[in-house]
């Protein structure tokens, strides 16, 4: 097992070290778009009553974890030039908005479960809209940057 972990760490560090900022940005945007897209699809399925809460909840949790990792890894890249710094800021902001949208969706779902705060329930529609906006933003970025592969 340790050999596998070592190899994984090795290959990952090779990527992290060798990847220039624009490639890292493309890869982070690609993964972020995938995570947010999953969130949109999950909420749609929940709204259409095609999937139960456990599946959607787990899916959102998985995606939130993934986004956290993606953003953390992206932040390990240090931009050198002005252009790179701008791109870095742009992508990081988009990832942060994606994180926000996902956590809003998770809160909504959780509050629906416990029916806490009936006065002002954050609605699923709001959460979906936030996720969809983030998905659109990341998709535009992805069009511009490619998948980084």
């Amino acid at each position: 097992m340790s050999a596998a972990v070592l190899l994984c760490a090795l290959s990952q560090s090779v990527i992290a070290c060798s990847a220039p900022v624009d490639q890292a940005a493309a890869s982070a945007v690609n993964q972020g778009a995938s995570a947010v897209g999953t969130g949109v699809l999950s909420l749609d399925l929940l709204a259409k009553e095609r999937a139960g809460t456990p599946v959607v909840e787990t899916g959102l949790e998985d995606m939130a974890e993934e986004l956290d990792t993606v953003r953390k890894e992206f932040l390990d890249n240090v931009p050198a030039t002005t252009d790179e710094r701008a791109l870095h800021r742009e992508v990081d902001a988009a990832l942060e908005r994606a994180q926000g949208a996902l956590s809003l969706a998770r809160q909504t779902l959780a509050s629906k479960d416990t029916s806490a705060g009936p006065d002002n329930p954050p609605s699923l529609a709001n959460a979906r809209a936030a996720l969809a906006a983030s998905a659109k933003e990341l998709e535009t970025l992805r069009q511009r940057l490619g998948t980084g592969r």
Binding site: Q31, S34, T38, L41, L45, R50, A51, V55, D62, M63
Partner: peptide, 23 residues
């Protein structure tokens, strides 16, 4: 544009197609 990284994503198409029973 969704790339599978978790088991929860694998079942989404089934839910989309067949709803809760299929899921």
């Amino acid at each position: 544009g969704i790339e599978v990284t978790s088991l929860s994503q694998i079942v989404l198409p089934v839910a989309e197609a067949g709803g809760k029973l299929a899921l």
